[in-house]
Design a protein around this nucleic acid. Structure first.
Lengths: 345, 345
DNA sequence: CTGAAAGCGCTTACAG
DNA sequence: CTGAAAGCGCTTACAG
């Protein structure tokens, strides 16, 4: 079944040259006479020769393989990052493997061992906001990993992380969402999901508060619900908020951490008999494939995550030290609308 | 930045033994005296030694790396497969890389080159139904690849593909869907999406027709719409079917190729003023994360794709030649209901 | 139980 | 322009 691979020796002896010469045409060096190059090339084709990337990696120290660590792949948000990274890597002749988030867990026994043994040419890590004590640990793990291979970060990367990064500017994004909503007349705007992350100038909470200030609106603690980025959590948070407030204090607009949370909010609104967007606007983030097919079609923010993945690969391979920020785009659909009449009418 | 890796030589000279001995404790061989094993082990820990999987691969011929080819990752259906495969691979000490579907395109110049050069220990390919001329070509590509590494197939694998496989038994699944629907009184049942694939005894069309026969229902060609597995295609197909039929001939139940198509159908129904499930039932397949959050929550089939991915990895590594079939589970939600009253009332 | 030697399939200086 | 030699960091027989 498994065929014996032909090697550089086979080609060399076939053509009657040294393996050094074969290696030269393999690597596309110019200092080979056209005649021998041609003969070698033909022999390679004839034998269907494929150089072993393993052997090449051992001698040249470059393996043409990258790693990527994502919190999870089942949220399409991360699948987009992975796809973008994979496609770019392939274009550049690299292979990319997914490693679990637990690879960063410095509590486990040698979680990163596999990562290091692979002699990767680089590693992309998608960072999320974490409770502070975790935060320190992850940063320590990243610094260790960096001793072995270049690391670039993506996602929610606070500016004080001393790594090249393609970061989401969540603060700016939030500000523009707030502007979008306040211009439509909303004043009671809730923000659901995510951790309290207000030390980072790029975080959503900062943008949320700035948006409130810009519109001269009060910060209402009951409208800021922390929680995980899942649909279940979104639904639970929203349920709890609504049930704990008299109707007249219900928000007229909901900003969800992401589309998953937004899905949960939509569900909750439905169960509470609230019409979206007539009585309540909902906006998500990530622009998942299902956003246009929810009811009502969900207004969301497209953050071009495929581009993020691709860009991270470029930074990794070029070795540039840059901290970039991501553009985004508002995808207006039917889940947000101006306030026309009071809900309590 | 990039640290010099310590090698087996460093450990050997530190402890004062030969590299063969270090290699022995590295590989966990038993024929090493407890005393030297201990000393070597400690030196390894002290130096934070990580063996190069590249060098090990070169000598042992086993690279502990697998490949997987998926049509696309953005449909969470494939992300589930990938996740299942990745987790199982990791448990077994393997790394897994994603390769694009184009790797099988024998028209392109050497598309599989990268695959072969990597000296993978095995390859998983997720197969879809394809137009016949394509089919032959893919099969040829798979056979070539198999000369270089073990290959196991997943997805829609016709039984005459001579590969180990974890296949969906779509025919059986369709039969049970048909039973589910006919028992609820549906007689006008449309099936939207997918290619005409009726040569494969495991295909959906076979199950659809058997289901019709079992309920002594006619095969209505207008109720079988071929098309791609996307939400857009689902919507377009459904629109076209509804617009081309007098209302009294509209189906009372829709079987969608997958949840994506179902999302499109739900949308189309909404735009046509059809209430789901009161006037029309819709059932999807794959049980994507968003299914419970659609409106109405979508009844779907969970095909346990993570298990499929994991199982494929096991077959690959164990080298068993098996063609297995996948279990599925009906996830009843609100999009299907018994016929209670005529729609035309 | 341990070591010396060869070899995996390449690349990399170094000569010529 | 081309080749001989060493080396990458391991594993694998083979001796002892």
């Amino acid at each position: 079944m498994k065929r014996e691979n032909t090697t550089i020796y086979d080609i060399a002896s076939e053509v009657g040259v040294s393996i050094a010469t074969v290696s030269r045409v393999l690597r596309g060096e110019t200092n080979v006479s056209p005649a021998t190059r041609e003969k070698v090339q033909q022999a390679m084709d004839r034998f269907n020769y494929r150089p072993s990337s393993i052997a090449r990696g051992l001698t040249s120290k470059i393996t043409h393989s990258l790693g990527i660590i994502l919190p999870k792949l089942l949220n399409p948000h991360y699948a987009m990052i992975f796809t973008g990274a994979q496609e770019e890597a392939r274009k550049l002749g690299y292979t990319i493997s997914l490693f679990p988030w637990s690879s960063l867990d410095t509590n486990a026994y040698n979680p990163a061992a596999m990562l290091i043994e692979r002699r990767l040419d680089g590693l992309i890590v998608c960072v999320e906001y974490l409770p502070p004590e975790h935060d320190e640990r992850v940063l320590a793990a990243l610094r260790t990993l960096r001793e072995y291979m270049p690391v670039v970060l993506i996602g929610c990367v606070p500016p004080w992380y001393d790594f090249p990064a393609v970061a989401n500017n969540n603060a700016a994004m939030m500000r523009s969402i707030m502007e979008y909503l306040t211009k439509m007349g909303h004043e009671k705007i809730a923000f659901i999901g995510g951790a309290q992350e207000d030390k980072d100038p790029l975080c959503r909470d900062v943008g949320y508060e700035e948006g409130l200030r810009a519109a001269r609106l009060p910060y209402t603690a009951s409208y800021r619900i922390y929680g995980k980025g899942t649909a279940e959590a979104g639904k639970a948070s929203m349920d709890e908020m609504l049930d704990s407030l008299k109707q007249e204090y219900w928000p007229t607009a909901i900003i969800a951490l992401n589309d998953l949370v937004a899905m949960g909010c939509l569900q909750s609104a439905r169960e509470h008999g609230i019409a979206v967007p007539e009585q309540m606007s909902v906006i998500g983030c990530d622009d998942l494939f299902c956003a246009p097919y929810l009811y009502p079609p969900l207004t969301s923010i497209n953050t071009h995550q495929q581009r993020v993945g691709a860009r991270a690969v470029q930074l990794l391979i070029s070795g540039e030290y840059k901290q970039e920020t991501v553009e985004w785009e508002l995808m207006e659909r039917a889940s947000c609308a101006p306030i026309t009449k009071k809900r309590e009418e």
